[in-house]
């Protein structure tokens, strides 16, 4: 019947969010008898009867459809192993790596070599934590040049913004190409080092202050100030 916490408040594991049977526990929460309890540190999000906690911390957990930035860690006869920052390695098969015809015994490192960074998409995740990736798709490619930084994966939606609105502000102000992976890796490429640094700072600022209201305006102001 009763909500014990306010929407958008910060809660910690074990905290009681609601009592009674009126609400339904979703991501980041669980039901224990009459209570709905937070299982992670994060922001409460109440949507009608659904209560969820959006995690403010934690490693990336892959979902089908996510675009991520991964690093090639192993090359086999017919696939590559890719580190996407999860507790388990992801798999890129020959079939999904390229539309080219690859002969048996060909040198796979010609396509993707150890240590290469790629933008790739998650196409499968099963219960045993096997993860399948593809390089076939718009914008998916091996990364050349630029700089990689790391942000908190759960803040990525905020960093990108609705339909890319937040990250576009940063791109325009700093004249940089920026690709944000759902796994928290961000690729920045720009001509001027100070602008790249500024983009970095702005992105880290969004990461730190993701829970604040009016962040879009603040970031615009921040960028304008620094560019004077």
């Amino acid at each position: 019947m009763t909500l014990v916490v306010k929407d958008k408040s910060i809660v910690v594991p074990g905290e009681i969010l609601a009592q009674g049977m009126d609400h339904v526990p979703a991501q980041g929460t669980f039901r224990e008898n009459e209570n709905i309890i937070a299982s992670q540190i994060g922001l409460v999000n109440i949507n009608g009867r659904l209560i969820k906690v959006i995690a403010l911390s934690g490693r990336y957990i892959p979902k089908v459809g996510d675009m991520v930035i991964g690093r090639i860690t192993h090359i086999s006869f017919s696939n590559w192993a890719v580190d996407i920052g999860y507790a388990y390695e992801a798999n890129l098969s020959l079939k999904e790596a390229t539309s080219d015809f690859i002969a048996r015994g060909a040198d796979l490192s010609q396509y993707y070599d150890y240590g290469d960074l790629v933008t790739t998409k998650v196409i499968g995740v099963n219960k045993q934590k096997a993860i399948d990736l593809t390089m076939k798709g718009p914008g998916l490619r091996k990364l050349k040049g630029g700089r990689i930084i790391q942000v908190t994966p759960s803040k990525v939606p905020r960093i990108i913004g609705k339909q890319g609105s937040m990250i576009s502000i940063v791109k325009e102000a700093t004249n940089c190409k920026i690709t944000v992976g759902q796994n928290g890796l961000v690729w920045i490429q720009g001509e001027e080092p100070e602008k790249v640094r500024l983009a970095e700072k702005a992105i880290h600022k969004i990461d730190q202050e993701a829970h604040k209201e009016g962040l879009t305006d603040e970031i615009s102001k921040f960028l304008k100030e620094k560019l004077k």
């Binding site: 050349k144 040049g145 630029g146």
Partner: peptide, 14 residues
């Protein structure tokens, strides 16, 4: 990561 090493090198030139 090699990308960051290349980036560091490009900054040093500047």
């Amino acid at each position: 990561m090699n990308i960051n090493k290349e980036y560091i090198e490009s900054l040093l030139i500047k």
